[in-house]
């Protein structure tokens, strides 16, 4: 045995490393779901997801394990979503909805796709901050306190945004009896 080759580093599982690639990979489905609910099935959805992953990759070294990784990631994703909400004009919906409403019945599938498009068109008409407050609290069912934390605002501000969002949505749904009826019938 030569002295130069005399020591082999013992290899055994690391105590608690955060493998960035693994962490990001595990976050991908959650990031996609958050982004989907914030942006809807619009063009550029996948770009927004990728941007969020880059932001998360950049932020991961700051993750100290004091919260869950998803708790750490949520504000980053929301901030990225804001950037992708900003292009003016109504978002152009994509056919990808087929994949999320797929079922055996083509008629039902098409109806589901149309409804989801309509829902997101209504949602996209809200001001950005109200939209995010509504998605966080009403769709993701995050607590008001946590949503305020994610948004970096006081809980009062968050509640005010949510209240305005609900009022505006109620007004718009009232003006669309067909959609309103369908929503009622599905409850």
């Amino acid at each position: 045995m030569s002295s130069r080759d005399s020591v082999v580093i013992p290899l055994r599982p690391h105590a608690a490393p955060l493998d960035p690639e693994r962490a990001l990979t595990e976050l991908v489905p959650t990031v996609r779901r958050w982004m989907w609910r914030l942006l809807g099935p619009r063009e550029g959805f996948e770009d927004a997801v990728q941007d969020a992953l880059v932001e998360l990759a950049r932020a991961l070294p700051r993750f100290e394990g004091r919260s869950s990784l998803t708790t750490f990631a949520h504000p980053v994703v929301v901030r990225t979503a804001y950037r992708h909400m900003r292009p003016a004009g109504a978002p152009r919906m994509v056919d990808a909805i087929d994949q999320v409403t797929s079922g055996d019945d083509p008629e039902r599938r098409a109806a589901g796709r149309q409804q989801l498009e309509r829902l997101h068109r209504v949602l996209a008409q809200l001001p950005e901050k109200q939209r995010v407050a509504f998605v966080l609290c009403a769709v993701e069912r995050v607590s008001h306190a946590r949503a305020a934390e994610i948004e970096g605002v006081s809980i009062e501000t968050l509640r005010a945004r949510l209240k305005r969002a609900r009022a505006e949505l109620a007004r718009r749904l009232k003006a669309d009896p067909e959609l309103a009826e369908r929503l009622r019938s599905e409850r």
């Binding site: 779901r33 409403t101 509504f134 769709v139 929503l183 009622r184």
Partner: peptide, 14 residues
Amino acid sequence: LVDAFAEALRAEPP
């Protein structure tokens, strides 16, 4: 109705 709207938005991405 708004709650129903929120519930209907709880879709999963592709």
